[in-house]
Design a protein around this nucleic acid. Structure first.
Lengths: 189, 189
DNA sequence: GAATGACCAAAAAACCACAACAGTCATTTA
DNA sequence: TAAATGACTGTTGTGGTTTTTTGGTCATTC
């Protein structure tokens, strides 16, 4: 396998396991079985390496979403499927979870900045999908940006925050059900 | 005015302005124009003084809510009015805002604990009101606890979080509109 | 007998010596 | 001879220690 890819995989593993701050370039080099200097022939610095990985993650999510949405299905059905995929995604992707906890515990500025970007990216996607549905006259006219923000925050609340104050984690089915009962239900015409 | 009240007001002022950690008992004594020892004849310690103040704030909110809800109005109307009152409340009460930012920046355990309590208290009230509406057959049967949690998180998202990533603050009318369009709309039968 | 502020122990801030780190570059390797 | 390397360097962060601040007490005052 090419060295660039090896480095990316080693770094992803380390970022997911230890977070951004606790990952050292020496460590990445060791895991990737390359000299430290080699990393710097492919990536300008630690931050750029990190950005590349997060960007890859976002692309992965986008791909998952696009693989699920179908023109033939109703908004409600599509929304249900996308939400399910995202909820599955969360568990498989240790990186996002680690970054969120790292931001809360220490408040690493680089991580903070990247999470804001991820948030904006996701809200943008949700907004685009809502707008499409409105244009197709599938759902009623609402303030797209605000509703997209609401959906994102609701998602994070159930998928991440809930288990912090309650000691049981919510099942995917339960979360999807609340979305269907409330926000999604209100949007369809 | 009685000394106890003077102390409470001084402490409220200081907690609102500087937060919990940065408020010293010497400072409170000076603002209240009493000796430091006097504070301890009324309150066992700093934490109890703090709790009393936060508890007073919750009672104030409860009173505001009870003054607005009316048996004659529909759920939608009542929800609208309560939400408006809460949104007005947010601006007047600098204390809550300060505590939330203090929890985010440093993570003072006392503040954290108190905010969890406030959250649980508020979610409990919302849940009670939803249950009442269900019993009266005004809204459809939903998972009360989850919907209450959703409403609380949505409220916090729009009232507090929004302005952190966007640089404009949302008007009360706009926030109420989203609630009406989405969550509230979906609940009515 | 209620109020006070000097006082004390405990916690936090300031300091500093030292270690760990990101990033470089002369040397090595293939 | 171009790519890879790891010893090296300046900077940032950490841990242990001293100094300061703070919550809480209590003998004295009013």
């Amino acid at each position: 396998m090419d060295r660039r890819q090896e480095i990316l995989e080693a770094a992803t593993k380390s970022f997911s396991l230890f977070g951004y701050k606790a990952t050292t370039m020496d460590q990445v080099a060791k895991i990737a079985n390359v000299g430290k200097g080699t990393i710097y022939t492919f990536f300008a610095n630690k931050e750029e390496l990190f950005h590349e990985i997060v960007f890859t993650m976002i692309k992965e999510m986008k791909a998952k979403k696009d693989g699920v949405i179908s023109e033939e299905r109703t908004f409600q059905e599509n929304a249900h499927l996308v939400l399910m995929k995202m909820l599955e995604f969360r568990e498989h992707h240790a990186l996002l979870a680690k970054l969120i906890s790292e931001e809360k515990e220490m408040k690493t500025p680089v991580v903070q900045a990247v999470l804001v970007q991820v948030e904006q990216e996701i809200v943008k996607y949700i907004a685009e999908n809502i707008q499409t549905a409105i244009d197709k006259d599938e759902i009623k006219q609402v303030d797209v940006e605000l509703v997209a923000y609401l959906i994102f925050k609701a998602y994070m609340a159930f998928a991440v925050d809930w288990q912090l104050t309650h000691n049981d984690s919510l099942t995917e089915e339960k979360i999807v059900e609340v979305f269907q009962d409330t926000i999604f239900a209100s949007l369809i015409k």
